[in-house]
Simulated assay, not measured.
Amino acid sequence: MTSTEVIFEFHERTAADGLREPVRFEHGAWFVHGHADVDRVLTEHATFSSDELRHSAEAVPHADNPLLRTMLALDPPEHHRQRKLVSRAFTPKAIAALKPRIAATARRLLDAAGPDGLDFIDGFAYPLPISTIAGLLGVDPGRQADFVRWAEAVTSFAGSFARDPSRRAEFEKAYDELTAYFRELFEVRRTAPRDDVLSTLVTAGGLTDDELVDFCALLLINGHETTKTLLVNALLCLDRYPWLRAAPVEGVVEEVLRFLPPSGGTDRFTTTATTIGGHAIGPGERVVAMIVSANRDPAVFADPHRFDHRRAAGAHLSFGHGIHFCLGAHLARWQAEIALSVLVERLPGRWLLPPESVGIRTTPVGVDVTALRLDWDG
């Protein structure tokens, strides 16, 4: 079985296993698979909290990770306070203004590739969203290598990995550099604001510098990592189903989100004793909402293992639901739609993904693509 086949098989098998056993305990957590139960976990924040530091019954070895202080990991009222302030700057108008930049960057990245192909992750899927986030925040896109390094060090500082002294040292160094970079920018924007999200947040007030740093870290890390994965998954689908290259790009992207979601699952922590699928769950337990399974629940999606770009949009849970619905959902969709349009428009002749070029890493909630090459000929 090739790496690409492993990816598609994982999603189908996980959903099928979840249908047979919708709630089960493994890897020290309750894994919830059905669409209705996953939606409940995502929306009932009073019972299923995002605040690991406050509600986890187990010790949190990665407690220093700044992502645990952002609105992504907070409950109301603190979540609502921060999201309201951030939303004032993160407007549809500000996001839409980035569309020409996204298209220009996508074309430039393809033009910079060699005559026979490119490393899709390092040469396209990483730099495109980093350029977009840089434009949104008004930061230097030339720091791409630093942004990637900081993001990888912060995201890898989680769970048992946080007990690794070398990973902790990398994390602390990366976060110190990230903090210093953004604090310097805050001072510059206070004296010379620009037309960007960072200037709006800094001059509007309401957020402390520590909260601003953590939000920038969240946007930088989640904003590019999730979109990178969406672009990779979209390319995998276009390679597997070549006729999609002639299909309306909006429908293709929406079905990619359902079929191969950028995040296979997300954690919550019970604030009190509750019941899911007939299983009694105590307070402080980790609950993993399996988006990969919910998106293929036959009770919601007809013929769920078939890629159908004509499905009605809106039922999948890839951007979450409830108070933590992804703030950057529109931006992620637009980047993927523009990127796929440019790829189909600009790539000469036949193109393919050599099976031996696809590197993967399997986790309990998905299969991460670590390497991917896109080849073509004229």
Rank of each mutant, 00 (worst) to 15 (best):
R190G: 14
V38T: 01
A103Q: 11
G284I: 13
T362N: 07
L235Y: 00
L343W: 01
H321F: 12
R81V: 14
H33C: 14
L110M: 06
I221D: 00
R194I: 08
P248A: 11
G265C: 08
T229L: 07
T43Q: 12
E184V: 10
F161I: 13
R101M: 14
A145G: 12
R268N: 10
H305W: 08
H79V: 12
R373L: 09
D303N: 11
W150E: 01
T105G: 04
L137W: 00
E78T: 15
S160L: 13
A57G: 15
R101G: 10
R20C: 08
A371M: 08
T226C: 06
P304Y: 00
T14I: 13
R54A: 14
L327A: 07
E5K: 07
R194F: 08
A46S: 14
P262R: 03
H305Q: 12
P66D: 07
E337W: 04
D119V: 06
A162S: 13
D146F: 06
D214N: 14
P76M: 11
S50F: 06
S156E: 13
V252F: 00
V23C: 08
T226P: 04
F120L: 07
R143V: 06
V288E: 07
E170G: 08
V365Y: 03
H316R: 03
L67W: 08
R81W: 11
S156F: 12
P77D: 09
R69F: 10
G28D: 11
T155G: 06
R373W: 09
L118R: 04
R346D: 08
T362H: 09
A134G: 09
F269R: 14
V188S: 11
V365K: 07
A106M: 05
L198K: 09
L343T: 02
D303V: 04
T266R: 12
R40H: 13
A289Q: 02
E5D: 15
L236A: 02
E177V: 13
A125P: 02
D116P: 02
E177R: 11
A162R: 11
L178H: 09
G28L: 13
L72K: 07
T203V: 15
R311Q: 04
K93C: 06
V300W: 03
I102F: 03
A289W: 02
I102K: 01
L372W: 01
V154C: 05
S166F: 11
A16F: 02
R167A: 12
E52P: 08
A192F: 10
D39M: 11
V344H: 07
G206R: 14
V288M: 15
H79N: 09
E345V: 08
L238S: 01
F124G: 01
F319R: 00
F120R: 01
T208V: 14
L19R: 15
L244K: 00
I360H: 05
V154R: 02
G282V: 12
I95Q: 04
S357Y: 02
A153S: 15
R258K: 06
G142K: 13
L178R: 04
E337S: 09
V256R: 00
F301Y: 03
R333T: 06
D122M: 10
K93S: 10
L218M: 10
A89R: 05
T47D: 05
A94Q: 15
